[in-house]
């Protein structure tokens, strides 16, 4: 038995978001279009979930293709070269194959050479889990620069004739590039799960199996159990609700977003992400997609403090405070 002590590495004092990128599929699907093929209406959909339109990916817009597009934009925004990146994490719950995963292929396509790479599935909380894991990797010295992607093609796993799910779930990808900093730009992640509700959201495997969701149970859980998580994410980052410039929770349902915002006691000028109206529920892609839209429109600005929260199948949740690049 060797008694040589294992040596550890230490990384940067903090990680920061250096760039954000997004990819929205070309095809825009309105509520009126859906009303032509199923018993629903624009009024019904808008009043229940707040969605006006969503994007549905076409065959060439795969999870990997959308990840490459979003990741490439995030890399360009960060000003880094592909070879600077040494960790690539793809969060997704709708990959066409379990093996191989998307991460190594996405990295290869972007010209990132031999990074640590894996996929992460924490349902709709996936992006915030991946962001937490990647920021921690930079702090411990396991990585210097990381590309974190959330990408979904939920139309592959949704019954597009089922009005309870087809009107909600959609496709897209968003990405962030993280790097080392003295002044932390990503706060501690607060993550957890409630596995007793494992059946609330499911995508069974097997031919023809489609996504199911117990809408009332998830709505109750999201509107009652996650306010504490958001508060903890702010507490652990040493900020208060008054410091938050942008609130960007998972874009599942506009009513959940409004209720959470009300309960948090955010300031009057806090910008609230409502990308669900245009994007539908894109699971692990929703948080970076929403941030990207706010930065593009100028509603959110570089240097703003944003409170993020992912939550979904598992049931899982993760939140953190980040400074926008």
């Amino acid at each position: 038995m060797s008694d040589t002590r294992i040596q550890l590495t230490t990384g940067a004092p903090g990680a920061a978001v250096l760039g954000i990128g997004a990819y929205r599929p070309r095809r825009r699907v309105t509520n009126d279009e859906l009303s032509q093929t199923m018993d629903t209406s624009d009024e019904w959909i808008q009043s229940r979930v707040g969605i006006a339109e969503r994007r549905w990916a076409e065959p060439d817009e795969t999870v990997v293709e959308m990840s490459v597009a979003a990741g490439g934009k995030a890399l360009a925004a960060s000003g880094l070269a592909p070879e600077d990146v040494d960790l690539v994490v793809v969060a997704s719950a709708s990959l066409p194959t379990m093996i191989p995963g998307a991460g190594p292929e996405v990295a290869h396509r972007l010209g990132i050479r031999r990074p640590g790479s894996y996929d992460l599935n924490a349902g709709c909380a996936g992006f915030c889990y991946a962001l937490g894991a990647a920021a921690d990797a930079i702090r411990t010295g396991s990585a210097t620069h990381a590309l974190v992607v959330g990408a979904e093609k939920l139309t592959d796993v949704t019954d597009l004739t089922d009005r309870s799910t087809a009107v909600i779930f959609a496709d897209g990808a968003g990405a962030m590039v993280l790097g080392p900093t003295e002044d932390p730009g990503v706060g501690p992640v607060v993550w957890g799960s409630d596995g007793d509700q494992r059946d609330a959201i499911a995508i069974p495997t097997g031919e023809g199996a489609k996504l199911t969701m117990a809408g009332q149970a998830v709505y109750r859980w999201a509107t009652t159990r996650l306010t504490d998580t958001l508060q903890q994410a702010m507490d652990r980052a040493g900020v208060t609700a008054a410091d938050i410039d942008v609130f960007a929770p998972h874009q599942a349902n506009l009513r959940i977003i409004e209720l959470m915002a009300k309960r948090l006691g955010l300031g009057e000028d806090t910008v609230i992400a409502r990308d669900v109206v245009q994007a539908g529920n894109t699971s692990s892609a929703s948080v970076p997609l929403a941030l990207s839209a706010l930065l593009e429109s100028g509603e959110a600005k570089s240097g703003d403090l944003a409170l993020l929260l992912g939550y979904g199948a598992g049931l899982t949740f993760a939140g953190q405070v980040v400074r926008l690049p």
Partner: peptide
Amino acid sequence: VDSLSMVEIAT
């Protein structure tokens, strides 16, 4: 009252 408002009423 829709199904989601019923959840809010219940809580």
